[in-house]
Design a protein around this nucleic acid. Structure first.
Length: 952
RNA sequence: GGGUGUUUAGCUCAGCUGGUAGAGCACCGCCCUUACAAGGCGGGGGUCGUGGGUUCGAGCCCCUCAGCACCCACCA
């Protein structure tokens, strides 16, 4: 068959034969960024997403990549819908993490931060930040994240720091920030307080020691049970339950505290559980949260026995001083035993508080700290608005639906935490961070203000001597809590910043926050609290809680397990040796190294193939169900790379057939059935995508696009277009119609896929867009396709279903009868209805081409021995004449009959129940009857065929 | 102790208001057919964790139990 001239010549289309992501991705990203297309448009309804600012110390991990893929998909999707989109990016100064990195560098040189002094040390951290702080933002670019980098912020920027000071001062002046000597979670290694959220409780095997405390004067000795014998040096009482008959007579009497010369009272408190241990509890208010409360109730003294690095201090007998708390424990237990006071040592499982940052065991420690009041019902001076002024609005926002969680049940987690919240310890004994805007005079008076002058101005008292600024800095999350408004220029409602203020009004509240459940308390709740307090607005309308990324087996990814994957290694690929090297480089313990190496070699015998950013992104989208974990499987990722390749090759086909041709941009157009069908299917698909994007079901949106692309566009439409373009006797108008459909459907599909797979769609769109009559520099600034852009056509869908069944029936015969794919076969139609005959006539060229038929005939008279396919009541016969194996066909028919009879049985049972017929909606009953009828017709036809074959 | 999620094919998961159990991967055949072997065509495979209830009808709604996972709190 002669090809059109344009195809015979060297084709002008220039796409490589196989999809190759390397190269195109960097090129396109650079182009997008250079053109400023990530910046919000000047008009349109605002849409804003806040990037959870990654730590400047960080590198991109799978969790980031997943989360950012979803954010970018939404950003691009809404940008293409003509909205004024801001994806606000930036990084977090990450107090402890960052300070530790620089301290470790110093340690390598044998120095500590104290050798440098505060100013020089902080300067050094800034230096490090300028050098290394952009690693993660570079990596985000590789992923395609369309963050507006021109407005990137850092939590220690001057503007954000000003916001931090303003907030601190305002809360202080509103009576919600206070300083006090309180028991806090103390990290003895980092030597700073941490908040309750930064403490993990881990179950450990420990002991329960029973220790006898002798009676001082009369009465009996009491035996206490403790998991921390060393704290006995700070004991101030022994508590028993007031109703405990065993000890009632001892209440109010004195005991001799072993190893010391102190006398302590026996007190009664209902806090004590009679059933646990011995029913006698030693009370150490300085080093236990419960004991502290109890001590306060009873007006007991507080005796701290540890230094800030958790060594025994001068309050203890001299022989224990200077011992580390664990060494002290050993010695004390030994000494008690020697004194005959250790009654028993039992094995005991207990929860040990561990610092998230250093893995050190937390020591409750009495220190001066700043707290944000989240619990008091009234302010100290009785001013109005003090009734949980910060937390109540945050609860109301979620309860009232102003802030909506997806999946919805996370709101329960949020609400329950806020209902039981404790005051937030916001001060940290670090150098890297926002230094607290408070000053002390030499008499210890506190002056709070945005600067020293402001602090003095607002104070009613005269400072004594020189002022000295509080050495401490604020918890990193303090500035993170302000992110929704500090990044938009707050505080700054001044004329010279009018433009910025306009943005503030446009983008606060932001549209949706995408984040992990692990920081609902750390960050989400605190943003709601702070933003409402200072702006009167919620920070965002919706919170989408994304899943945690696990490995293919559902295991948590961790470096020491060796099951982490670097998203960049997926994008670029990595060889086995390089991967082994990289996975083990940071591991210090030889056994762990060995284990990890083994695992890597087993999991990735070939290393990791390069799949490109688009395939990785598509994988994330496809995995993004409402489930709370997703298992990342490399296999799945490779599958989506194949999808990209499929799209690539389909595009090559389209270009091959349309480039340099008359694609019907003008002139007479006639759309074939297939043309109308694929447009209808696309319309339907776009409807699903729209719905699923709106509900954050990225998996379903991705699935709809995947299935349309592969199962409908490629598997059917492209095949159906072949006879239309290559077949003989097809009118020019009709060929134009098909070419027009090829380019318009593909062009729209590329736009539809762009938010998920930005690079490949851009690369192809550059070629396909113009053919579809689109001008514009990039697909990313084109309008997103709408369902109404393509016509739904129910008739075309029905017609095409008939064609598909016709072809599928014949394919099955071909496959099961083992007829070569190229072999032309004759077909006879039996019991064809009028509409069957008309369809067969109308689509004869199409069917002949696709199913490789010799001809289609209508059966007149007796049927020859044939293989049979059913299409409704019609039988499609392939006469056997040398082609068909009779035994195989009999077996095939028998199998099919058995299947249909099974269905008939089910239908009959159902319809045989009066309950069903009488109670089910008539439409359902009718549908069931219809099904039964169809099955009966089918089975009858099949049986006839079987009988005919049997008689031969 | 309080809370949440989860249990569907060999594996990983969909199944949205109850009405004929699906996908990808893996597996088994046939095929290098000029868009694509990173592919095409065909096929096998599930009593939906257990026990009950509601309903004409339950993978889906209610209750029981069990397994798995996570969060918060915590008795020294």
């Amino acid at each position: 068959m002669p090809r059109p001239a344009a195809q015979q010549k060297k084709p002008s289309w220039t796409m490589d034969k196989a999809y190759e992501p390397r190269g195109m991705e960097g090129r396109w990203y650079e182009t997008w960024e250079r053109h400023g297309w990530f910046a919000p448009a000047d008009q349109g309804e605002p849409y804003c997403i806040l990037l959870p600012p990654p730590n400047v110390t960080g590198t991109l991990h799978m969790g980031h990549a997943f989360q950012q893929t979803l954010m970018d998909a939404l950003t691009r999707y809404h940008r293409m819908h003509g909205r004024r989109v801001l994806w606000q990016g930036g990084t977090d100064h990450a107090g402890i993490a960052t300070q530790k990195i620089v301290e470790n560098q110093l340690a390598a040189a044998g120095k500590t931060r104290h050798d440098l002094g505060r100013e020089a040390f902080v300067a050094k951290v800034w230096e490090w930040k300028e050098e290394s702080g952009s690693t993660i933002t570079r990596q985000m670019r590789r992923l395609g994240a369309s963050v507006d980098w021109t407005r990137e912020r850092f939590t220690m920027d001057p503007g954000l720091s000003a916001a931090v000071r303003r907030v601190f001062v305002q809360w202080y002046r509103d009576g919600l920030l206070y300083r006090g000597k309180r028991l806090v979670h103390w990290d003895p290694v980092l030597q700073t307080a941490v908040s309750d959220l930064e403490v993990n409780n881990e179950e450990k095997d420990g002991s329960l020691w029973l220790i006898r405390y002798p009676a001082a004067a009369g009465g009996k000795d009491l035996t206490v049970a403790t998991t921390r014998p060393e704290t006995m040096l700070g004991d101030v009482a022994v508590a028993v339950h007031p109703e405990d008959e065993r000890y009632k007579d001892m209440i109010g009497k004195q005991l001799r505290l072993p190893l010391t010369d102190r006398l302590i009272p026996v007190i009664a408190d209902e806090y004590v559980d009679k059933e646990f241990g011995t029913g006698c509890v030693k009370i150490t208010p300085a080093h236990d949260f419960n004991d502290q409360k109890l001590g306060q109730r009873h007006g007991l003294p507080v005796i701290g026995i540890f230094t800030l690095d958790a060594k025994v201090n001068e309050n203890a007998p001299v022989q224990y001083r200077g011992l580390d708390r664990f060494a002290a424990r050993k010695k004390i237990v030994a000494d008690l035993e020697a004194a005959g006071l250790l009654v028993e040592t039992k094995k005991h499982k207990l929860m040990v508080p561990i610092s998230q940052r250093s893995d050190a065991v937390i020591e409750p420690m009495l220190t001066d700290q700043w707290f944000l009041d989240l619990t008091r019902d009234t302010q100290p001076d009785g001013r109005p608005g003090g009734k949980r002024a910060i937390t109540e609005p945050a609860l109301a926002a979620v309860r009232g639906g102003a802030v909506k969680f997806t999946p919805e049940n996370w709101s329960t987690t949020y609400v329950q935490w806020l209902e039981n919240i404790q005051d937030w310890c916001v001060s940290r004994q670090l150098w890297w961070g926002h230094q607290i805007p408070a000053w002390f005079d030499e008499a210890g008076n506190i002056f709070v203000g945005e600067d020293e002058a402001d602090a003095l101005k607002h104070s009613t008292i005269k400072p004594v001597g020189k002022l000295r600024q509080d050495e401490d800095v604020l918890d990193t999350w303090f500035s993170s809590a302000l992110w929704p408004f500090s990044t938009l220029g707050w505080p700054g409602d001044t004329p010279e910043r009018a433009k910025e203020w306009e943005r503030f009004n446009a983008f606060l509240p932001s549209s949706v926050l995408i984040t992990g459940f692990d920081i609902i308390f750390f960050w989400v709740a605190r943003m709601v609290m702070a933003t409402q307090y200072f702006t009167g607005r919620v920070p965002f309308h919706e919170v989408y809680i994304n899943a945690i990324v696990r490995d293919a087996e559902g295991q948590k990814m961790s470096k020491s397990k060796g099951n982490t994957i670097d998203p960049l290694d997926l994008i670029d690929g990595i060889g086995l040796e390089a991967l082994v090297q990289k996975s083990t480089a940071a591991l210090l313990i030889p056994q762990v190294r060995e284990k990890v190496e083994k695992r890597v070699r087993k999991d990735y015998p070939q290393g990791i193939p390069a799949v490109g950013a688009d395939a990785l992104r598509f994988t994330f989208a496809a995995l993004a169900t409402y489930s709370r974990t997703i298992n990342f499987d490399l296999k799945r990722c490779e599958g989506y790379k194949n999808f990209c390749n499929k799209l690539w090759n389909a595009s090559r086909y389209v270009l091959m057939n349309t480039e340099g041709q008359d694609n019907g941009l003008s002139g007479e157009l006639e759309f074939s059935l297939a043309d109308r069908w694929i447009q209808s299917r696309l319309s339907q698909t776009l409807g699903i995508v729209e719905k699923e994007f709106a509900s954050y079901r990225f998996d379903l949106a991705a699935q709809a696009l995947y299935e349309f692309t592969w199962n409908e566009f490629c598997d059917w439409y492209l095949e159906l277009s072949k006879p239309a373009l290559q077949g003989e006797g097809v009118s020019a108008a009709r060929q134009r119609g098909t070419r027009r459909t090829l380019v318009t459907v593909l062009e729209a599909l590329l736009r539809a896929l762009h938010p998920i797979t930005p690079f490949i769609t851009e690369e192809i769109w550059q070629k396909v867009g113009p053919l579809a009559g689109k001008s514009g520099a990039s697909v990313m600034i084109q309008p997103y396709p709408r369902p109404s852009d393509f016509k739904r056509d129910e008739t075309a869908e029905q017609e095409l279903r008939w064609i598909q069944e016709f072809i599928l029936g014949l394919r099955r015969i071909r496959a099961e009868m083992d007829i070569a794919p190229g072999k032309l076969i004759p077909v006879l139609l039996q019991d064809a209805s009028k509409s069957d005959r008309e369809r067969a006539e109308r689509y004869q060229p199409l069917l002949t081409f696709i199913a490789r038929l010799e001809n289609i005939g209508l059966l007149t008279g007796e049927a020859p021995p044939s293989a049979t396919a059913l299409l409704g009541e019609m039988k499609i016969l392939v006469p056997m004449a040398g082609l068909i194996d009779m035994g195989a066909e009999r077996a095939r028919l028998a199998k099919e009959i058995a299947r249909v009879e099974g269905e008939i049985g089910k239908c009959q049972t159902k319809l045989g129940k009066p309950d069903f017929v009488d109670n089910a909606p008539p439409a359902v009953v009718e549908k069931e009857r219809q099904r039964l009828k169809e099955f009966e017709t089918a089975v009858q036809g099949l049986k006839e065929q079987l009988k005919r074959l049997a008689s031969l």
